[in-house]
Design a binder for these strands. Sequence first.
DNA 1: CTGAAAGCGCTTACAG
DNA 2: CTGAAAGCGCTTACAG
Lengths: 344, 344
Amino acid sequence: MSADAEPAPVSAKPPVTLREVAAAAGVSVATASKALNGQGRMTAETRERIRETARLLGFRPNSLAQSLLRKRSFTVGLLTNDTYGRFSLPLMAGVSDALVDKGVSVFLCNVEDDPRLGQLHVEAMLDKRVDGIVATGKRIDRHLPVDLSNLRIPVVYAFTQPDPGAVGLVSDDAGGARLAVEQFLRLGRRRIAHVTGPESFAVVHTRAEAWRDVLKENGLPTAEPLLGAWSEAWGHDAVEKLFGKAGREGWPDAVFCGNDQIARGVIDALRERGIRVPEDVGVIGFDNWEIVAEATRPPLTSVDMNLASLGREAGLALLSLVEGQPAAPGIRKLPCRLVVRQSG
Amino acid sequence: MSADAEPAPVSAKPPVTLREVAAAAGVSVATASKALNGQGRMTAETRERIRETARLLGFRPNSLAQSLLRKRSFTVGLLTNDTYGRFSLPLMAGVSDALVDKGVSVFLCNVEDDPRLGQLHVEAMLDKRVDGIVATGKRIDRHLPVDLSNLRIPVVYAFTQPDPGAVGLVSDDAGGARLAVEQFLRLGRRRIAHVTGPESFAVVHTRAEAWRDVLKENGLPTAEPLLGAWSEAWGHDAVEKLFGKAGREGWPDAVFCGNDQIARGVIDALRERGIRVPEDVGVIGFDNWEIVAEATRPPLTSVDMNLASLGREAGLALLSLVEGQPAAPGIRKLPCRLVVRQSG
DNA sequence: CTGAAAGCGCTTACAG
DNA sequence: CTGAAAGCGCTTACAG
């Protein structure tokens, strides 16, 4: 054991450098570098001795210096405008989880809907020489308030509107809607209504179309979807519309809802009318927002967009772009899954 | 305009270096550096010419190179184990927002409750030479699954259990509870019950104690708080206990709930019993989880822990530690605020 | 098998 | 007023 060896990294001391390791092992920095990186040729003993010395000294290479040489920082930027929403959380966790094992760290960039913030963050990322950027949002039909189309680094879009020619990942909303409607059919439901969000959302149309397609394919009568707000209150109002006037025979026997909040409102309103879920009417939501789905009485069956997987895929897609693998541009749709609880 | 000047940063081209700026401006790199940093002495024209050249070339200094010299990376790590929860979101946004304007970027580190992940992320942060770390969690009486007590960089704890001798920021839960109870008193309520979470949470005791203190201070009768789960279902059960047996005179005229989900359950259960909120009974929640509070019928009055401010303060506290300002160790409590809606 | 040299992109004393 | 030199901590041809 060399006299230079420190017991353990002590607070406030600067980190151990390669130079110190080399000195302690009695070799040059070049040799030390090669020993630790498994490069070059040297006796097994030399290599082992250097490694042991490094271990003893608690040496960890300065990533900043490595990045400067390697032209890669092993960092990526994660842009989002959904810092108070619930969609970005699993998405961000997915991105981070996919990358941490590859030694890649993720910068969190909250851009809200503010172009100034967007600009600020993008410049910070570029200055810090991130290897790439994942752009994330709270809806797939809106752009972030930044232009990422002419950066010199790869960009992957996840759950937000991609630039033309870019790589984008979104959930397969049509597929998710099919899962819900087909579950109803399997349960013998035949008059399946659809209560969903505002017209201005692309997913409202995608899901409604899939709902109608499945009904048609099965020779069932279709109707207009009921559009409104993404809220419990709209769920209540929709029940009034659907179950208010007609005789019992005219009622739907199932309601496919555009999100879990609407579904929650629908279920509460049905209960207040003495209509039983799922005995009289089945209800399925969208988003699988667990804390809501599980508190609903009865617990809510819901379509899950697999956002954590989406994030993970986005992270991996970015990584392969960074590593120079060509990726087919365009939007890739990832499957949803149905989480069956008790409401439908 | 020099012949070397490029129109705009084009994709795939490597970034412009200081060397290129210097060449284009006909000076040495040293002079160029000083011109851009406002250092050294030179004619105003020289400085201006260099700056103009840099602007034209779209020069942005390589932050990695700067960090290597300055011994500061202008990055910090943000550890959290609450990636699927709702507490960390405003907290993280607050940290990020406070720092982006100072040129400091934030690494997102999702450690779940997994020591391996914790270790992995802390090592990545250290390797990347972050200037400091903010540790964040989902409850203030639990440690993250990592030991941050002997790092050579400053650490600030926000909404998670700090190490002894460290700087920690938490919400003032006792103060928050007082706000709720005092609001009830102001409204003339006198029999104020408390329905809250499980015994294992420190905040359950803190809030219950404050609730009881305010009652005592006002000469009102106190009782035992009702402990249960942090769920709507427990809210329902608690209403059964409070309003089930006794005659109307024995009923509380107000219920202070430990979180918004419990409050939601309480309000729903009261409605189902035909007890009016707020006419017959006032209800106040905790957390001000807007999407729940606003959907409750009537909309829920709730205590807000100001988590975004907490995050902001944590970011700023870390920054001053990084800059060498001494900070008093110990736990700093930040005030809550009451958001009055209609339930109490 | 090992080391001296050059260099990543920048900054900062120090000369002139 | 401006530039040459040294250096941050590392890696990678290139000699020997």
